[in-house]
Measured scan of single mutants.
Amino acid sequence: TLFEALYDYEARTEDDLSFHKGEKFQILNSSEGDWWEARSLTTGETGYIPSIYLAPV
Rank of each mutant, 00 (worst) to 15 (best):
T1R: 10
T1L: 14
T1S: 11
T1I: 13
L2K: 04
L2V: 13
L2R: 05
F3I: 01
F3M: 08
F3A: 04
F3K: 01
F3G: 01
E4W: 08
E4N: 03
E4S: 05
E4I: 15
E4L: 09
A5T: 03
L6S: 03
Y7P: 00
D8Y: 05
D8M: 04
Y9V: 03
E10H: 11
E10I: 14
E10K: 11
E10L: 10
A11P: 05
A11S: 13
R12S: 12
T13S: 14
T13I: 07
T13M: 12
T13H: 15
E14C: 13
E14T: 13
E14W: 08
D15Y: 15
D15V: 14
D16V: 15
L17R: 03
L17V: 06
L17Y: 07
S18L: 01
S18K: 05
S18C: 05
F19D: 00
F19T: 05
H20C: 11
H20W: 07
H20N: 11
K21D: 01
K21V: 09
K21Y: 05
G22C: 05
E23G: 02
E23T: 06
F25H: 00
F25W: 01
F25A: 00
Q26Y: 14
I27H: 01
I27G: 01
L28W: 04
L28M: 08
L28A: 04
L28R: 03
N29I: 07
N29T: 08
N29E: 07
N29A: 09
S30K: 13
S30R: 12
S30Y: 12
S30M: 15
E32I: 12
E32Q: 15
G33N: 11
G33S: 13
G33L: 11
G33K: 14
D34E: 13
W35M: 12
W35L: 10
W36R: 02
W36Q: 02
W36M: 05
W36P: 01
E37Y: 15
E37N: 08
A38G: 09
R39K: 13
R39H: 06
R39A: 05
S40D: 02
S40R: 13
L41F: 06
L41S: 03
T42L: 13
T42H: 11
T42F: 09
T42E: 15
T43M: 01
T43P: 00
T43G: 03
T43S: 11
G44H: 07
G44W: 07
E45D: 09
T46N: 05
T46K: 10
T46Q: 10
T46E: 09
G47L: 05
G47P: 00
Y48M: 14
I49V: 15
P50A: 08
P50E: 08
S51G: 08
S51P: 10
I52T: 12
Y53T: 06
Y53I: 09
Y53M: 14
L54S: 01
L54E: 01
A55N: 07
A55W: 10
A55F: 10
P56W: 05
P56F: 06
P56S: 07
V57K: 03
V57E: 07
